[in-house]
Design a protein around this nucleic acid. Sequence first.
DNA 1: GGTTGAACTCAAGTCTACTTGAGTTTCTAG
DNA 2: CTAGAAACTCAAGTAGACTTGAGTTCAACC
Lengths: 158, 158
Amino acid sequence: MTQTTRPSPEQLLSIGEVSERTGVAKSALHYYEQLGLISAERTTGNQRRYHRHMVRRVSLIVVAKRLGIPLTDVAQALAELPHDTKPTTGDWRRVSKVWRTTLVERRRELERLEHELTGCIGCGCLSMTACKLLNPDDELGAEGPGARRLLGSTDASE
Amino acid sequence: MTQTTRPSPEQLLSIGEVSERTGVAKSALHYYEQLGLISAERTTGNQRRYHRHMVRRVSLIVVAKRLGIPLTDVAQALAELPHDTKPTTGDWRRVSKVWRTTLVERRRELERLEHELTGCIGCGCLSMTACKLLNPDDELGAEGPGARRLLGSTDASE
DNA sequence: GGTTGAACTCAAGTCTACTTGAGTTTCTAG
DNA sequence: CTAGAAACTCAAGTAGACTTGAGTTCAACC
């Protein structure tokens, strides 16, 4: 890649267009801008004009939301991307890696829970103490607050 | 299982104890009760006394929250469990199944995203149109709002 | 050049999920 | 019996993520 793109007009998008393409309400786009997640140029008449690459940022925000990642975290991740210029492959790569790590962590958590639930259903242990999912209280209660078993001990890494 | 438990006093728990065992703040427990997610008996002096099985309900609530499931949905799932008596294996089994379905769905979604991101990282396609994750706009924009590619085409089956 | 749809700003409102505070009562250990 | 910890209720506040509304300005087509 690194195709030497000429400084073309790079057709800018209005907020309405970005909203349509991403499925995100205009008001939400305003909000994201307030939080510094996205940005836009302005016409002489003060209307927003988005670079095409902003659509990608918005898409990533949507994904993150879908995964329950708070906007502040998203902001952190996106902070690595330049607002003003088209992000390079390397830029995206960095962000992708961070994202992927988050995804993998979440998936692991889900799998753990899924496994435990499956176990419960399979073994019919639900009524008694053997079930890890539903009985984190008895053995673990003494260790202090927090449903450790349930949440998995994701202590450090996060 | 199905061990014929005598109608023992079944040591009831105070709100403080439930809070400690589950790691959920007392105020949150009050709140959950308001929403009908949990319930408790009362002493003659009007203090809450929880049955042990309520700890499990709370634990499930915690899990659901962790998965980003809104409390209203949790309420629906828990609606199948009796408040007043100890849920039977069958009761839990039903809830577990619903839960597991949700888990599986979420995990699939994550995996899809993970896969796409991995592809992006692996092939270095991020700069151009081939990347499904970051380019849902160009080809799909014409189809109307919504980041379809990103969210996966969760049309029918699920 | 006028009108109409799209945008703009800024303040306020909404919804979820709780937390905090005030003032009061109950429980439990000494 | 009494002091202090723990609970209780009810109202109000908070934080995140937006939406809604009011009043105003642009932009684009006929």
